[in-house]
Nucleic acid binder design. Structure first.
Lengths: 145, 145
DNA sequence: TCATTGTTGCATTTTATTTACAACTATAGC
DNA sequence: GCTATAGTTGTAAATAAAATGCAACAATGA
């Protein structure tokens, strides 16, 4: 069970932006974390389409938070970047082939478990995970040097 | 975010065995659910190695529960069949490459969320999800016919 | 007008998972 | 003991999903 690197990257972008409090370019972000610019591009794109960040092209452009960090719920981010939360086949009615779907009680339990997972990360906003920004930025600076 | 089909199959095996209250052969299980015998084999193997089921070769052999359904915790099953619960890269210290690991507060939150997921399925045993066995077996019978 | 910076779509690579295959071992009944 | 049944093991192949790369494009500010 894991989130995609895609979601992971989206979180990293938000954390970086919230930590610096400024806007950043795609190249800066990719270099800061030492990750694929290409993949990052798509994560940022998804963040933009979902209203978490704003982007501006051209000289002096870049990516910045579209709203205060305290108004960006972590669960909303995960829901928008993760392709799906189909824990088991039967969660997807359309494509389910499991013969006991409907009668099986496991489905409900796994749904509750997923909700519990969501509820937990739903307790926090981006602001909650961006307190130690100096330490964090120092870490990034040290590794990219 | 999802569990592997492997884990899914493991659950299906346990549910079947608990529902019939008898032992079943690999072929019977594969046919009942209409799924790949090959993959099922490995799931059963893992279940056996982790003490959830007992297997017997030869004529009249097959697979049966190694302990009462009420003593088989769903979370234990998931933990033994799922390859890992590395929700994000940094959960795996050995291979982590994220530069802010350690200072980043998201890790802790995702760990708590994962624990919440586990705690939820940990509330139940195989016995809890095997009440409506007749309905369930009828469903299987109908589809495999 | 040009350099900068994000956008889009498609192709490729990589990885993980799933499935298949084959040779093997154990067991029960005749 | 022979034979059919049934699980075991290891390896290989196929599939699917995710990650990465690339190239042509569009907007913006100096």
């Amino acid at each position: 069970m894991k989130l995609t690197t895609f979601s992971d990257y989206a979180f990293r972008v938000l954390i970086y932006l919230a930590s610096t409090g400024e806007s950043a370019s795609l190249s800066e972000l990719a270099q800061a974390y030492g990750i694929s610019r290409n993949h990052l591009v798509k994560a940022v794109n998804t963040l933009e389409k979902n209203g978490f960040v704003r982007t501006r092209r051209g000289v002096g452009g870049g990516i910045s938070l579209a709203r205060p960090a305290s108004e960006i719920s972590l669960v909303e981010v995960a829901l928008s970047t993760e392709p799906n939360f189909t824990i088991v086949e039967c969660f997807d009615y359309e494509n389910n082939t499991c013969r006991i779907a409907g009668a099986c009680r496991l489905e409900r339990i796994l749904q509750d478990a997923t909700r519990a997972f969501m509820a937990e990360i739903g307790k926090y906003t981006l602001a909650d995970i961006t307190g130690n920004s100096k330490v964090l930025l120092k870490l990034i600076a040290r590794s990219s040097a």
